[in-house]
Simulated assay, not measured.
Amino acid sequence: MAKRAIPKIGAQKISAQVTAQDVARTLGVSQSTISRAFSMTASISEDMKLRVIKAANKLGYQPNVIARSLITRRTNMVAIVMANLVDPFYPVVLDELVQQVQAGGFQTLLFVPSAGQKVDDIMPNLLQYQVDAIILTSATISSAMARICAARDTPVVSFNRYVPGLNIHAVSSDNVGGGRQVADYLVATGHERLAFISAQRDATTNRDRRSGFMTRLKQLKITSCLQEDGGEFSYEAGYAAAKRLLRQASRPDALFFASDVMAFGGMDAAREIGLSVPQDVSIIGYDDVPMAALPSYGLTTIRQPVREMAKTAMEILGLTGERARSEPTTRLIPGTLITRSSTKNRRAVSHLKETAA
């Protein structure tokens, strides 16, 4: 049987598919060296990596990721399920997750459920891709689907929320702690008529922010705090809720919204009805999306530690070189209060008035 000719470097035409073995034979190195040159995380010198890539380009060699996955039983792909791309917080999350996943030598597959579609409905299609891990953001799965993933040894992490009793990992900011920080800040700055505008009632992010806020106010002997149901994490929900609250005879002097995008709606509503922010009403959000720092909003908010959350998710899923955690793990990471021009120190103003009198 005649041996297959090895394509020579500089050849204009390639009559047969070039393999990693061909490139290795041409350079006089092992086939594993070729594989390492095309891996983001493998140990190989820059000089050798450059030699391999140049030779591969001239020979017309291109690694076959699918074929490699059949050998290694790993696709090096991570699925990200994101049910909400409208809220400006989630594009920030998506960017950070993709950067972290790619830095670890993996690629991402993005799945976005259609309006009204449950995450469980897309999971059978997702699992066909044999992904190495799944990250759920602004979404959750059923206990039955969690068991299916466990049976397939596919680790799953819920990002930015957790579901009590669900047998999957979870990484979130410490929303209870964030709510407590807001309560401490508003009371310390002399606000007395407070209100919390909630979003989705069943979301742990919403429940924990409200719980931390309300519980801390009771500890600080603040017994009067309005609660308004916005219904969802959206600009429209914050806008409508703020109008209802601020048109009352005894309106609040501070509004704490369950998210930044809701707070933006609240600020615009306040201005529309002739109120000044923060002279008439202070407004606080949660997330610290890029828009919060714009001069037109200058929103005081709780900054979510998205980068640290993403790194923690990678660690839990076993995407950093360590094995994935077998037992369900929930990590809560503290956020940071960022003060801007949407809030006012009323205690300082009151002191100045007393001094002037």
Rank of each mutant, 00 (worst) to 15 (best):
T300F: 10
V163D: 13
V261N: 15
P295E: 08
K311D: 13
F257R: 03
P124L: 05
S45M: 02
S114R: 12
L110C: 02
V261R: 10
T72D: 08
S350V: 08
G231T: 03
P155W: 11
A199I: 13
R244H: 11
Q219N: 06
Q107C: 05
V18G: 07
V65K: 10
V163W: 00
I53P: 01
A188F: 03
D268V: 01
L85V: 10
I316C: 03
M267R: 07
A79F: 09
S30I: 00
V101K: 02
L194D: 10
P278L: 04
P91F: 09
T75Y: 08
F256C: 11
R74C: 08
H351N: 07
D268M: 03
R180D: 06
S234E: 02
S211T: 04
M123D: 07
A144T: 14
P252V: 07
R193K: 14
R210M: 07
T154D: 12
T329E: 13
S69A: 12
T312P: 06
D253A: 01
D22W: 04
Q304S: 04
P113Y: 01
I135Q: 04
A188D: 15
R25G: 00
S250V: 13
G335V: 00
A348K: 12
T355S: 04
L59A: 09
V86Y: 11
A183W: 04
K344A: 14
A56E: 05
P295A: 12
Q279F: 05
K118P: 01
I134M: 09
I122H: 00
T137H: 08
Q219K: 09
S259F: 03
P155H: 08
R209N: 08
D87K: 06
L166N: 08
A103E: 11
G212N: 08
R201Q: 14
R36G: 02
P164Y: 01
L220G: 06
I283H: 07
G321T: 08
S224I: 00
D174C: 05
R193E: 13
M291D: 15
G231K: 06
E232N: 05
E315Y: 00
D87C: 14
V156A: 09
N76W: 02
N64K: 02
T312D: 15
R323Q: 13
M82R: 01
T330G: 06
R4I: 12
M48W: 00
L332R: 13
T204V: 05
L27M: 10
V23Q: 12
Y297D: 05
P7K: 00
R51F: 04
A146E: 13
A151L: 03
R216P: 03
L246Q: 09
R210E: 14
L166E: 08
Q227N: 03
A313H: 09
Q227M: 12
T154R: 00
L27D: 12
K49W: 02
